[in-house]
């Protein structure tokens, strides 16, 4: 099969994705190296995190990503309506993520935990909240794409916008694939 020279979607979003990945990469490394100097602290407070919530969220993001894949497939099939529906489903899973994460934050905040509590919580809150903002941004992009798809703005011939939004959303998912084990599980 003939390979493409460029990744799907607008090339500019890929520059953005690379930049975002770089920021997250630096953040992950900072977490790991700081942990190496504070292992007991990190191990102790990691136990206070809700792994079940994190599981639900991981499943939500993966599922959402999969729905976006279906949306891209639908528009390649020239089916705007189906594309729109899959995007709505993906957005719903994004919403699930936000609600569950919000519940986790609520739990921590009600215990009076904040950025100054200790280094572990500083990283936990910073990393997950930075990612949280990306979920919101990704959802805004998906919503814009979905609304355009609904009015038939894309077709099998021209659907760069769908692929662009999809690529960004997969990046949000990709980052969480590392964040989840790193912050919630690895000890």
């Amino acid at each position: 099969m003939e390979k493409n020279k460029w990744p799907p979607g607008d090339l500019v979003i890929w520059f953005f994705i690379m930049a975002e990945l770089l920021v997250f990469g630096v953040f992950f490394a900072a977490y790991a190296f700081t942990r190496a100097n504070n292992i007991e602290l990190f191990n102790e407070f990691q136990l206070t995190l809700d792994r079940n919530a994190a599981l639900i969220n991981t499943v939500a993001l993966i599922t959402s990503s999969y729905f976006v894949v279906r949306a891209v497939a639908a528009i390649r099939d020239d089916n705007s309506k189906r594309c729109f529906h899959w995007l709505l489903a993906a957005l719903f899973m994004g919403l699930v993520f936000l609600v569950v994460k919000g519940y986790e934050y609520h739990h921590h905040f009600s215990l009076g935990i904040n950025l100054n509590t200790n280094t572990f919580y500083m990283f936990y809150l910073s990393l997950t909240f930075f990612h949280f903002l990306h979920v919101i941004l990704g959802m805004i992009i998906l919503l814009a794409v979905a609304l355009k798809a609904r009015t038939g703005g894309y077709s099998a011939a021209e659907h760069t916008g769908v692929e662009t939004g999809a690529s960004y959303w997969h990046m949000v998912d990709l980052v969480w694939m590392i964040l989840f084990p790193l912050v919630y599980v690895m000890r």
Binding site: M1, K3, N4, K5, W6, P7, P8, W14, M18, L21, S65, Y66, V68, V69, E163, A166, S167, H170, M171, D173, L174, M177
Partner: peptide, 19 residues
């Protein structure tokens, strides 16, 4: 995710290997 969802498996050259 990079290979299949993001579709990088179908890409050749630099961008294939970014993720």
């Amino acid at each position: 995710i990079g290979d299949y969802f993001m579709g990088l498996k179908q890409v050749a050259g630099f961008w294939r290997w970014t993720v």
